[in-house]
Amino acid sequence: MNAAEAINEAEGPDAAYKYINELRERAGMPPYTGMSKEELRERIRNERRIELSFEDHRFFDERRWMLFEKQTPQSEKRLPIYKQIYNLYAARVSGEADNPIYEYVIEPVHSMRTFNSPKNYYFPIPDADVKKAPNMKQNPGWELTEANENTGGEENTETIE
């Protein structure tokens, strides 16, 4: 899937079909053909979502693809559930064991994720490393701040150097 994604972005779908269709053939799915670069990109992203579920890839994929940009919990409600990233859904199962009924509802305890751009696209650089190399700056949003004594302990927006 990594090769299919990279080749689709670099050369287009015709060169990427070979790689994504290998995966689909293994799963007994029909091959992809005749798509634009953007269409295949969406299909590859969905393949990654399904194939790599429960393997801790989604966290990094969402950030790498910058899916949080230009989205809000309200604006994405018009999207299919599988494309929503802020709103968290739960599966409510009812009915009998031989005839279950699945209903997808907003998760009742933690119904929404929070994302701060650009901070959450990066991890912080350890403070000791920043101090060792003074010309290296901390990643955006992770800069340390100090309490301003004149304002009764409110945070000062100036960066500590």
Rank of each mutant, 00 (worst) to 15 (best):
K131G: 07
M29N: 02
A128S: 09
S53F: 11
E96W: 02
Y102N: 08
G12L: 07
K18R: 10
P140M: 05
Q74G: 03
F115A: 03
S111A: 13
P13G: 06
I20P: 10
V105H: 01
E107L: 06
K18P: 08
Y32V: 10
Y86N: 08
E161W: 13
A16Q: 05
R78H: 02
S111V: 00
G153Y: 00
E55I: 10
R58F: 04
Y122W: 11
M112N: 05
I44V: 12
K119S: 01
N148G: 09
P140T: 00
P140K: 00
P124S: 00
N8G: 07
K18I: 08
R45K: 07
P80N: 02
A3D: 14
A15I: 01
S94H: 03
P80G: 03
E76M: 04
T159V: 15
Q138S: 09
A91D: 10
W142D: 11
R43M: 11
A128K: 05
E161I: 14
I7L: 15
E42F: 00
G34T: 03
M1T: 09
P31D: 01
E42R: 11
E47M: 05
E51Y: 01
R64S: 06
E69T: 05
N2E: 15
E155D: 09
W65H: 04
K131T: 10
Y89I: 10
G28D: 06
I125K: 05
M35E: 10
R26S: 11
N99L: 11
I160Y: 03
V130G: 06
G141D: 10
H110T: 13
R63H: 03
M29V: 01
E25M: 06
T72W: 02
A147P: 12
E42C: 07
R24C: 09
E69C: 04
N150P: 01
M29S: 03
L40F: 02
I160C: 14
T151R: 06
E107D: 08
R49N: 08
I81S: 01
S111D: 14
Y121K: 09
A3K: 15
M66G: 03
D98C: 11
E9I: 05
R43Q: 14
W142K: 12
P80D: 04
V93Y: 00
G95Q: 04
Y104F: 14
I20D: 07
Y89K: 07
M112D: 08
P73S: 07
S117K: 03
R58K: 11
F60T: 08
M112G: 04
P73V: 02
L144S: 13
A97M: 11
N8E: 12
I7S: 08
E39S: 12
P108V: 05
N99A: 13
N135H: 07
A90H: 04
F59E: 15
K119Y: 01
A147S: 08
P126H: 00
E158I: 11
L23N: 09
